Amino acid sequence: MFLELVLLGLLSTCTANTGVSEESEDQFKHWWHYCGIYGPEKWSTLRGKGLWKMCMDGKNQSPVDLQASRLIFDRTLDGLKFDGENELSGKIKNTGHHLQFETDTNSNRKFRVFGGPLDYSYTLTTIRLHFGNTSQRGSEHLVNGKAFPGEVQLMFFNNLYEDYNTARSKPNGLAVISIFTQLGNTTNTELDKLTSRSVLRELVYSDTFIPLSRMNVRELLPLTTDYITYQGSLTTPPCSETVIWMILNKPIYIEPDKFSLGLRELKTYRKENPEPNPLKGTMMNNFRPPFGLGNRILRTNIFMQENQDERCPVSKRVVVYKVNEGIMSPSNTRS
């Protein structure tokens, strides 16, 4: 495990700010990008009437840097619970911004999460990949200022609402489970379904998609019950501050060739479009820079018991995270 700590904790409560409604959103999905004059620093100015103003003015924006010194152990946080169907049908799509799996909204097969920091049940709608132009960066969230090669985000909507588009403008409307990707000799079997060369050859251009009949969500998740959670926002416009984030404390693995020979070859423009968009035509570095945590609290259920030190009976052990050549390893400190 690469995240372990002991800190006395307390609960956090945050008020969620809402974003723009869906009716005025879909037609502008190609307006924003990850660099240049349409990049994250400009998102708030790309729409009139301040419809994306939360991207700049929000106080609870995501992603954030997960600093060990800010982690608070909360003994009331249970492990996440899941129900519904393990295997879902849907489609794998190149959106021009991301490669993602979108569940079939007309299917009765659903995958839900509840428990932990969630007061309601949430239904999975999208599995989204973020990655960089090198393996030294790619994740949206950082750990002590260091990035992972990629980040897989499972996006859920609150079952109080009819669908994702309705829920994303509501307080606690969305929940996202985030998984870091780490380089390895083999690729997670379910991640391989999204990143195999045979699949990516069909998805080179924006707005292309292929069906996928069996995505086993449980097999995509790493074997851990530990996570970090905080109140945040969507990391794409309209940056609505309605998201409960849960970052799992184990990565899943992906072969380096999946990036160099596949994901980094995806295009951000349609095949029939003669001019590449401002991302210079290639999908990479599709991550938003991190924001300050502000007054928010990073809660965690990760606990490590240590034998009491006779010389310092109240000492506690904290694990500080270091990244060496893209591999996470803990080093112990005392306070």
Rank of each mutant, 00 (worst) to 15 (best):
P117H: 12
L118A: 07
L142V: 07
L142R: 14
Q153Y: 03
H130M: 12
R137I: 06
G116N: 11
R137G: 04
A147Y: 02
L124E: 01
Y122A: 02
R109N: 05
V113A: 06
Y120A: 09
F111S: 02
T126R: 15
R128H: 05
H141Q: 06
S121E: 13
G145D: 05
F131M: 04
T134L: 11
R109E: 01
L154V: 09
G145V: 11
M155S: 12
T125K: 14
S135D: 12
F148T: 05
E151P: 01
H141V: 00
F148I: 00
Q153D: 14
K110A: 11
E140S: 15
G115N: 07
G138H: 08
L154S: 02
E151D: 10
R137S: 10
E140R: 04
P149V: 08
L154Y: 01
H130I: 05
M155T: 12
L154R: 01
G115H: 07
L142T: 12
V113K: 00
V152H: 03
G138D: 09
L142A: 08
P117N: 11
T126N: 15
Q136D: 13
R137Y: 11
G138N: 10
M155C: 11
Q153P: 02
G150S: 13
H141C: 04
K146H: 06
G145I: 11
H141I: 00
I127L: 15
E140N: 14
F114T: 13
T126Y: 15
L118D: 10
V143L: 08
M155Q: 13
R109W: 05
G115E: 10
S139L: 02
T123G: 11
N133H: 09
S135R: 03
F111L: 10
T123W: 12
P149H: 10
G115K: 08
P149M: 09
K146S: 05
L124W: 09
F131I: 06
V152D: 02
R137M: 09
F131W: 15
L129W: 01
V113F: 02
S139H: 02
N133F: 09
L142P: 03
L154K: 01
L129T: 08
Q136L: 13
I127C: 11
N144Y: 01
Y122M: 04
I127Q: 07
G116I: 06
V152F: 06
V113W: 01
G145P: 03
G115V: 08
T125F: 15
Q136K: 12
E140C: 14
G132D: 06
T125A: 14
T126H: 15
S121L: 01
R137F: 11
G150R: 03
M155L: 14
R128D: 05
H130S: 12
F111C: 09
L118Q: 05
Q153R: 03
E151Y: 01
V113M: 07
H141L: 06
L129M: 14
Q136V: 07
T125I: 13
V143M: 02
M155E: 13
V152L: 10
T123V: 14
H130V: 06
G145H: 07
P149S: 09
